[in-house]
């Protein structure tokens, strides 16, 4: 199932522009691009709703306190930017199962959902362990 208007931007040019964006961010905001700490802060928010005392005592949530900061907004911005670009370019389409996954494992949403969930857990533990 190919996208209707599949005219993608050149990856070298887009990547170089992302590099300039990173430099501009360091120059004007003093911030290096990153996303995964935000997942810790967000997890802290969720856990705070259930046991605020416990979260307040956990070393990792003391190090990465649950708060909305530059990076939290950066991650939300990625969503908004991709949504806008997809809608404007006519490439927005709701789908549960990626094409390559469907070709190998079939169209089942359950199977894909479980794999995505487990993959997400493992990837985030790894990212945090490597401090990335």
């Amino acid at each position: 199932m190919a996208d209707r208007k599949d005219q993608l931007w050149n990856p070298y040019v887009s990547g170089a522009l992302a590099g300039l964006l990173s430099v501009a961010s360091v120059a004007f905001a003093g911030k290096y691009l990153g996303a995964s700490t935000t997942f810790v802060r967000a997890a802290g928010y969720v856990e705070k709703a259930f046991g605020p005392e416990r979260v307040a005592q956990m070393a990792y949530f003391m190090k990465e306190a649950p708060k909305i900061d530059w990076q939290f907004m950066f991650v939300i911005g990625i969503f908004i930017g991709a949504l806008a670009a997809a809608l404007l370019s006519g490439t927005f389409s709701l789908r549960f199962v990626p094409d390559m996954w469907r070709g190998r494992f079939g169209p089942g949403i359950g199977k894909r959902g479980v794999a995505a969930f487990v993959g997400g857990i493992v990837a985030m533990i790894g990212a945090r362990l490597a401090d990335g």
């Binding site: 993608l8 931007w9 050149n10 990856p11 887009s14 990547g15 522009l17 992302a18 964006l21 501009a24 961010s25 004007f28 905001a29 911030k31 691009l33 909305i68 900061d69 530059w70 990076q71 939290f72 907004m73 950066f74 991650v75 939300i76 911005g77 990625i78 969503f79 908004i80 930017g81 991709a82 949504l83 806008a84 670009a85 997809a86 370019s89 490439t91």
Partner: peptide
């Protein structure tokens, strides 16, 4: 800080989406 983060994210999101 938060506005800068949001703007930077939006531009990054556009680049990521358009490059596929």
């Amino acid at each position: 800080d938060m506005i800068m983060g949001l703007v930077t994210g939006i531009v990054f999101g556009v680049l990521l989406q358009r490059a596929g």
